[in-house]
Simulated assay, not measured.
Amino acid sequence: MTDHLADIKKYVETVDETVVAAMEKTYRLVLSKQDSASVSFSDPAELATVRENFLKKKLGVTGSDAELDAQIKQVGQQIHGRKDRLTVYYLLAEHYGKLDALK
């Protein structure tokens, strides 16, 4: 299994370890499958799922789809190599000031 905390620390100076532990528990099933443990930034349907299910439903982020899609794309460009789902979600939640929603 991926060391999610170490991966997130590559991109964030101070990581809330409580949030990461809660995310690992919440997304345990998704992370256990190789094809869903990372985000495919080349798949428009997957990016729409991140926008709709994570940003809008889980975090309660508002904004136009274009604005949210631009932020998702920016996170994808920030991460090098494999786009670990927890890293993507953590960076998006941090950007929107919504880390507490993941505890």
Results as ranks from 00 to 15, higher is better:
residue 39 V to Q: 02
residue 39 V to C: 06
residue 40 S to Q: 09
residue 40 S to A: 14
residue 40 S to V: 07
residue 40 S to P: 03
residue 40 S to G: 08
residue 41 F to Y: 10
residue 42 S to P: 01
residue 42 S to G: 12
residue 43 D to C: 07
residue 44 P to A: 07
residue 45 A to N: 12
residue 46 E to W: 08
residue 48 A to H: 04
residue 48 A to P: 02
residue 51 R to A: 02
residue 53 N to D: 10
residue 54 F to A: 01
residue 54 F to Q: 01
residue 54 F to W: 04
residue 54 F to R: 03
residue 54 F to P: 01
residue 55 L to F: 03
residue 56 K to L: 12
residue 56 K to R: 15
residue 57 K to D: 08
residue 58 K to A: 10
residue 59 L to M: 05
residue 59 L to A: 04
residue 60 G to S: 06
residue 61 V to C: 03
residue 61 V to M: 01
residue 61 V to K: 00
residue 61 V to D: 02
residue 62 T to C: 14
residue 62 T to A: 15
residue 62 T to L: 12
residue 62 T to I: 15
residue 63 G to H: 03
residue 64 S to C: 11
residue 64 S to A: 10
residue 65 D to Y: 12
residue 66 A to D: 11
residue 67 E to R: 14
residue 68 L to G: 01
residue 68 L to Y: 04
residue 69 D to T: 13
residue 70 A to G: 06
residue 70 A to Q: 13
residue 72 I to W: 02
residue 72 I to A: 00
residue 72 I to H: 00
residue 74 Q to W: 14
residue 74 Q to I: 06
residue 75 V to M: 08
residue 76 G to I: 01
residue 76 G to Q: 06
residue 78 Q to R: 13
residue 78 Q to D: 10
residue 78 Q to G: 06
residue 79 I to Y: 03
residue 82 R to W: 04
residue 82 R to P: 01
residue 83 K to F: 09
residue 83 K to I: 13
residue 83 K to A: 02
residue 85 R to E: 02
residue 85 R to M: 09
residue 86 L to M: 11
residue 86 L to I: 15
residue 87 T to H: 04
residue 89 Y to F: 15
residue 89 Y to K: 05
residue 91 L to T: 02
residue 94 E to T: 02
residue 95 H to I: 05
residue 95 H to Y: 15
residue 96 Y to E: 07
residue 96 Y to K: 09
residue 97 G to L: 05
residue 99 L to M: 06
residue 99 L to N: 03
residue 101 A to Y: 04
residue 101 A to T: 07
residue 101 A to D: 06
